[in-house]
Design a protein around this nucleic acid. Structure first.
Lengths: 115, 115
DNA sequence: ATGACGTACAACCATACGGTTGTATTTCAT
DNA sequence: ATGAAATACAACCGTATGGTTGTACGTCAT
């Protein structure tokens, strides 16, 4: 149970097309590892490893159902990753704001206060 | 000039704490590679490589100013990465919607049509 | 109880990654 | 014109990653 986000693991896990597709499929339906594997041109073990990487990153969990383990996504983790990118955008917009403020200051020798 | 997003490269580039910090600093101020390097406990060449990886991913560009190259972020690319995570969330919410629809259907034997 | 199905894991291989040092190359200052 | 500063790049090393095959463990059906 990870308490603080593992950005390295999260982004690392998303840095592979197969794994991103596994995330999509896990969102869409309830597939076991073998069913997942059937979609990709690689061995079962390879797909199993991909799922394990997603699991380590906290993006996915496995739930035992009968004799198979169904891959489920963890929305929380996806939101955490997105949040970081949101923060970057915030920073960016903040910088722009500061820049325009600076421009306003320098271009107006006596700053008129808007009511 | 990348026309379609390189998700592998983008997420891969973000899967490292040093590189994420470089992105932050690039957003905040206009630092050259050497200035960037001064913040981290590693060689200049190592930081240079990190910047190159961010550059390959399209997350950052370098602009020559005098004898140094200033690292600048590319907001566009950050938004593209975030957009993908947004899509995942969309899918997720869509699935929930479908599930609740199904529950509604099954729990109401004779579906009442609202006006 | 046997066998088939689904999963897990270890060992191995090739390649990529994060770091190092060393050697150019460009640009500014004197 | 010389030298220092800032950058670029190649070669190298250890480790992680993405793939393979093979073996072993649970679980269901018969």
């Amino acid at each position: 149970m990870h308490l603080l986000p593992n950005y390295d693991a999260m982004f690392g896990a998303l840095a592979d097309a197969t794994r991103r597709d596994i995330v999509r499929r896990a969102i869409a339906g309830a597939e076991g590892v073998a069913e997942m594997a059937s979609h990709y041109p690689m061995s079962f073990a390879a797909v199993q490893k991909h799922v394990a990487i997603l699991e380590r990153a906290g993006l996915v969990t496995k739930q035992r159902i009968g004799r198979r383990k169904v891959v489920q996504t963890n929305l929380q983790a996806l939101l955490v990753a997105r949040r970081l990118l949101d923060e970057y955008e915030e920073l960016w917009r903040g910088r722009i704001a500061r820049m325009t403020d600076l421009i306003d200051e320098t271009s107006e020798p006596s700053p008129p206060k808007e009511t």
